[in-house]
Computed example of a mutant assay.
Amino acid sequence: MRFYLTTHKRHWIALTDVPLFLKYEHFGVGTARSLPRAIGRYAIDSGGFTILQRFGRWTTTPQQYVDDLRRIRDEVGPFDWAAPQDWMCEPAIIHGGTYGGQHFTGTGLSVAEHQRRTVANYLHLRELAPDLPIVPVLQGWELPDYEHCVSLYHRAGIDLTRELLVGLGSVCRRQSTNDGAAIVTTLATHGIRLHGFGFKTLGLKKVGHLMGSADSAAWSYHARRRPPMPGHTTHKNCANCLPYALNWRTKVLAELPASIPPVRLGGY
């Protein structure tokens, strides 16, 4: 499993060769005169959860998205892959309201419509940018939803078992539960190479061996609840600190089960 360290600090890609995962918006393509050059691998999240939470719809057109991805590729360096502009299926995203102190606008659409739009967007992006490694994403809420999403791709002529990687959406908040584990296990059994968005240590220990890759920002939450590292006297905690993030990543990887063979990804 390739483990990406999630960060909102775009300059980190010029400071470490550890695989990084960044939201598209954090590159600041619309305002930045120049972008840092990556010295390691990285992948790009479209930031759909935040956008749909705020606006209940996508505010960036597919053409603008691929234009910006091309600039990132050309200036920062080739990325492993980028997520499409998919539609998350968490109840908060669909119905709206306040959850955990956060306001959600709500799309007012159904899970099935979110899935249809997710697949349609992937097909559109692939048509607009066959030169970019944009991966399909499976969306749903219950296991039958994800199996239905697989069938939507199949009807569109996309064999997910032949894809380099397939994102697994709307699972991060249930990753360590039995339901979350069942979704990952079933889809992996189908021969789909999954990427787990936003996985934490419990989820990684439970199903990480079944995925091709995963990303996590759990290090930042971990740091906010602890004093800063020795010598880090300029900040009250290390929630935005690269050395802390790298130490956390090393410890997490060391604690993952070593007896379970990794998923082989060919040239990936």
Rank of each mutant, 00 (worst) to 15 (best):
P261V: 05
V150T: 02
R225Q: 09
E90A: 00
G100K: 06
S176P: 01
M211G: 04
Y42V: 14
T201V: 10
K23A: 15
L69P: 06
G191H: 06
M211L: 14
G30K: 15
I44P: 07
I72D: 07
G106H: 09
Q115D: 00
R224V: 01
P84L: 00
D159K: 00
T161W: 05
E147C: 11
Q63D: 12
Y146L: 01
S216N: 01
W58G: 07
R117Y: 00
D67K: 07
H124D: 14
M1N: 09
G48D: 11
G100H: 10
I260N: 11
T118S: 10
G169I: 05
L210F: 02
T233Y: 08
T201R: 12
E163K: 14
T31Q: 11
Y65V: 04
E142G: 00
W219T: 13
I13M: 13
Y65M: 07
W141Y: 14
G56F: 13
L35N: 14
G208D: 02
L253D: 11
I183L: 02
A218W: 15
H114R: 06
R2A: 08
W141K: 04
E25F: 13
I13P: 11
W141H: 13
A82M: 08
T98R: 03
A218T: 11
G77L: 04
R57H: 14
R174G: 04
L242G: 07
R33S: 12
T61H: 07
A245Q: 07
Q63A: 15
V76Q: 07
T50N: 14
G180M: 04
L265W: 11
W219E: 01
G30L: 13
H190D: 01
H195G: 04
Y244F: 15
N178P: 00
K206N: 03
T234V: 00
L22A: 11
A245C: 02
W58V: 08
P19M: 10
R73D: 02
E90N: 04
Q139H: 00
I192Q: 08
T105C: 12
L69R: 05
M229A: 07
W219H: 09
S176W: 02
T105L: 14
P19K: 10
R37S: 05
V252K: 10
K200L: 06
R57I: 11
F104K: 03
D17W: 05
A156H: 03
H11M: 03
R37E: 12
I44C: 06
N237Q: 00
W219F: 09
I158D: 03
L5A: 10
L256Y: 13
A188L: 01
T161C: 15
R70L: 03
Y65L: 08
I93Q: 05
L20W: 12
R71P: 05
K236G: 03
T31N: 05
D17H: 13
G180H: 04
Y244E: 07
G157A: 02
V184W: 01
L52E: 09
W12A: 02
V29W: 10
Y268F: 15
Y268W: 15
Q102E: 14
R226C: 02
V184A: 03
T61E: 08
L265E: 14
P62E: 12
G157I: 11
K205C: 09
H154W: 08
V135D: 05
R37G: 02
D86R: 00
D74A: 10
E113W: 06
H103F: 15
I260P: 00
L253Y: 13
T60P: 05
